[in-house]
Nucleic acid binder design. Structure first.
Lengths: 193, 193, 193, 193
DNA sequence: AATGAATGAGCATTCATTCAT
DNA sequence: CATGAATGAATGCTCATTCAT
């Protein structure tokens, strides 16, 4: 489904590729939509497990940039290894192909919401040196932008444009740190109400 | 096709929605793949026309940031208004749904290559104050990253996460300018071989 | 469909038996329900045409019994020759098999309503010797009972119980005439308000 | 099965509606055909039990008409209360839907044969005042016609045409009595060889 | 004795495409 | 040039049935 899209994947093809009868899929998942929902659910779980695993023992010192670099490069690794799941995820985000699979769409929304929360946490942890209040605000304000970066990173990855992921993440980190530090200065000078 | 994907759009549905007989589509486009190719070709032309139009009379002074902001906010406008075309474009980039339509895929690659050249031109024009050589290098090095930004911007747009496009572009510009200026300083100090 | 029922008749079987591709049926009738609707509609038209044809030039003299006999024996002929149509009709009356084909069900109701009107007309014409008012009342009151007779006659026919149709119709006529004459006497003695 | 027909009733649906696992049906009845056979067998038993119960203590005096009326109105009650069973019975009589269930078809034939014998008995008992020989002949000759009446009555019932059952039975009785009495006179005048 | 899991054949329907007119 | 009619292959799904437990 990740490769051919939801509509482009026929139950017969899927069954043949899995080496099981079509009816076995229906027995276990009820419908094509149910299969997609299950696939997304499992993908989501594995994705977040991989993220948690990748971010075990984060660095407790170093500059904001070093810390964010540590988080994002590891996130990039997960991105590359979970490409199939993300392919399907982005596909469902940008098309209505799976309108008939509302459960799967809910998982999509959930993954994006939790994913953004995760990014927020990474940024906040990285900027903790600026003080907790500042770090919290910076994390909140930059999480959407960080997500844009990772979404775009994935599209770039799929377009096979040859640009190494590591370099792109480096630039993402550089940009985020620049914006984050500017914002931190601002906040220290004139703290929000 | 943008809404439902290539596989998810049946010729019957398309013909009905267009209010013409199915055979008329075959008469004009030969096949479903031919229709997609034509759609992409026209979409690409209109897209670049809109970009050219939007960037008529660029500012000849101001800071790098101001100039890039001008370019990118206008690009963002085009993005928002050509969402259907971009939807299909990204869909074809991330999935193999239209493997049977190689002509369309060529258009996709062409649009992305030209699009990146366009972004490179915008960045270079914005950084022209750093000297032409530096601006050229900065433009080349940041064009992929800028594209990542716009790809991600589009995904964000489709996910209806509510974050205003203008703000995201502002952050994109801020990040790019920070990286670009740092790189400019570097290049001025130790020019590349 | 008459033989195997609606649910028991698969489109594949029907197409094979008709010697045409399944898709041809869908092209012409849209769906299985549409096919049934068309079949019932044509059956109904042919049925009433056959009835009209059979009752051309009814006798203008003779006893009530002779006249009703003339009508009913000819109706019985139509019954026997349109057995397939009636089989499907009764099937749809007694089961919910074709719930998904509401158009067909409307035809069923229409055929029964018109059919009863037809029986009413036969009875009234036969009893015209009792006076038009009396004949009209007798026709109205006995039409349901006459229909019961023909419905039952058909079931008897399908059950292959070996009883000749001619004899059963003879008894139906005898019964109807007896009831009709008794009622006529009653009406002549004490006309209704 | 009575509602949707044999072919129209899937084992899954039946099991779900019964609140038991599908395999339990197979455990007890062996096959779909076996289930139908069992259903018909039980239905037949209950049907005849209800008939016997309804006709306990028949009137030992009164006119033929009064006695037949007694029998038939009570039979009509059973008809109305055993509609589901009769629905399935008539369905099996008029269609070949359950060709694969020969045991059930045998039950159908048996029920109709016994049912006719029962009707014969009712008529004979009612005409006993005409002498046993005459009553026996009248019963034999009118049993088929009586069955036609009850078959048609059932179809009428299912067609929801609004005609009260009691009235129809009244007319059936009137008709039968008229024919029976005429035949009795005939037989008394010129007894058969 | 009872049942959840499993399955190949078949279901109604839609598909992209062709072609006679 | 344009199209209604036609079609074989495939679609998602359900079927009656089996069987290991």
């Amino acid at each position: 489904m990740a490769a051919r899209g939801y509509a482009g994947s026929s139950m017969s093809t899927l069954a043949d590729e899995a080496g099981i009868p079509k009816s076995a899929i229906y027995h276990h998942f009820g419908s094509k939509a149910g299969l997609l929902a299950a696939v997304m659910e499992r993908g989501a779980r594995e994705f977040f497990d991989a993220m948690t695993e990748a971010h075990r023992n984060p660095p407790s010192d170093g500059t904001s940039r070093e810390r964010l670099e540590w988080y994002f490069q590891r996130t990039g690794d997960v991105w590359v290894h979970r490409a199939e799941f993300l392919r399907l995820l982005i596909l469902l985000v940008i098309s209505d192909e799976a309108e008939e699979a509302p459960e799967a769409m809910e998982t999509v929304v959930r993954v994006r919401t939790e994913g953004r929360a995760y990014l927020e946490h990474m940024i906040r942890s990285s900027f903790i040196g600026e003080g907790d209040d500042v770090a919290r605000i910076v994390g909140r304000e930059l999480s959407f932008y960080a997500m844009v970066g990772f979404d775009g990173l994935f599209v770039s990855l799929q377009s096979h444009d040859g640009k190494p992921v590591v370099e792109l993440i480096d630039q993402m980190v550089a940009g985020l740190v620049a914006i984050g530090e500017a914002r931190s200065r601002e906040l220290r000078t004139a703290p929000p109400a």
